[in-house]
Computed example of a mutant assay.
Amino acid sequence: MATPGWAQIRQQIRTAESQSETHFHTLAQYASSNNLSEKPSPEEQNTEDELLELFSKREGLIAQLSRLLDSESALSTSALKQNNLTRHRELLTDHRNELRRVKSQIAEARSRQHLLSNVRNDIASSRSAQEQEAEYMLEERGHLDQSHSVIDSVISQAYQINENFGIQRDTLASVNRRITLAAAQLPGVNDLMSRIGSKKRRDGIILGSFIAFCFLVFFWFS
């Protein structure tokens, strides 16, 4: 198989350079994307791997050009060929530097996007926790208000019962006075008076116990 000549090798290098430019365009799209995954996607990694393969291929082709140039006699070697070889080497170096720059841009964009995403997630979590805490406080406030309503109702009933007992006490006192007056005039009434006195003491004990119970309920729920 014949060894490729200068023109053929240069054509292969130019094709590889054009393919490299296409891959750079693809990588640049990742650098400007607003929806980068946390890790490089298979497509992104394949594009980078293919670029590295193109660099290696171009490096081998440039080495072939250099050997061809070295094999020519000093008289037949043209300045144009030397300039072409130098240009291919410089472009390969530029492309290597460009790959490092684009990879750095993609890494920064990925880090920035996921940092912002983490911050947004933290804010959302904090807001959710605050909302849950506020809801819990509202529920507890509702329970407390309900307890106060029950206590107010119990106290109101206690006051009403106390008022009724007061009316009954006044009535019994009036009846007691009448019975006392009658007892002074009628025999056997003293025994009836003793029973009525016992009933009054029992009512007093019941009233006192109920009021004490109401206050205990009030202090328990407050």
Results as ranks from 00 to 15, higher is better:
Arg100His: 15
Arg169Gly: 00
Ala158Val: 07
Glu135Val: 09
Lys103Arg: 15
Gln157Gly: 10
Ile151Gly: 03
His88Gln: 03
Ser104Gly: 14
Thr93Ser: 10
Gln160Ala: 12
Leu75Glu: 15
Glu53His: 12
Thr171Met: 00
Met137Ser: 10
Glu90His: 06
Ser66Thr: 03
Arg87Ile: 05
His148Leu: 15
Gln64Val: 04
Glu108Lys: 12
Ala134Thr: 15
Val102Phe: 12
Arg89Trp: 02
Ala158Ser: 15
Leu69Gln: 06
Ala74Gln: 13
Leu144Tyr: 14
Lys57Phe: 06
Gln132Asn: 14
Gly166Asn: 11
Gln64His: 06
Gln168His: 10
Arg127Ala: 10
Glu48Lys: 10
Leu61Phe: 11
Glu163Gln: 11
Glu48His: 08
Ala107Ser: 13
Glu139Gln: 07
Ala107Leu: 09
Arg96Gly: 13
Thr171Cys: 03
Ser71Cys: 04
Glu72Phe: 06
Asn121Ile: 02
His95Asp: 11
Ser66Gly: 04
Ser153Gln: 15
Pro42Val: 04
Ala158Trp: 00
Glu90Thr: 09
Ser126His: 11
Ala124His: 08
Ile123Gly: 03
Arg110Gln: 06
Phe55Ile: 05
Leu52Asp: 08
Leu85Gly: 02
His143Ile: 04
Ala109Leu: 04
Leu80Asn: 00
Val102Cys: 11
Leu61Ser: 01
Lys81Asp: 03
Ser66Arg: 06
Asp152Val: 10
Ser125Gln: 10
Leu80Gln: 06
Ala129Thr: 09
Leu54Gln: 02
Glu163Arg: 08
Ser128Trp: 07
Leu54Arg: 02
Val119Ser: 08
Glu44Pro: 00
Arg96Asp: 07
Tyr159Glu: 14
Leu80Gly: 00
Arg169Gln: 05
Gln45Ile: 01
Gly60Asp: 08
Arg141Phe: 07
Asp49Ile: 14
Ala63Asp: 01
Tyr159Gln: 14
Glu139Arg: 11
Arg67Phe: 03
Leu52Ala: 07
Glu43Ser: 05
Ile155Lys: 15
Arg141Ser: 11
Leu138Met: 12
Ser73His: 12
Gln45Phe: 06
Ala74Leu: 13
Arg89Tyr: 03
Glu59Trp: 04
Arg127Gly: 04
Ala134Arg: 15
Asp152Ile: 09
Val119Ile: 15
Gly166Cys: 03
Gln168Gly: 05
Leu51Cys: 04
Ala158Gln: 08
Ser125Gly: 05
Gln157His: 14
Arg127Asp: 13
Thr77Pro: 01
Leu91Thr: 06
Leu52His: 12
Leu92Ile: 01
Glu44Trp: 00
Glu98Gly: 09
Ser41Tyr: 04
Ser71Glu: 14
Tyr136Pro: 00
Arg58Tyr: 05
Asp152His: 13
Leu51Arg: 07
Asn84Pro: 00
Asn118Gly: 10
Ala124Tyr: 00
Arg127Thr: 13
Ser41Thr: 15
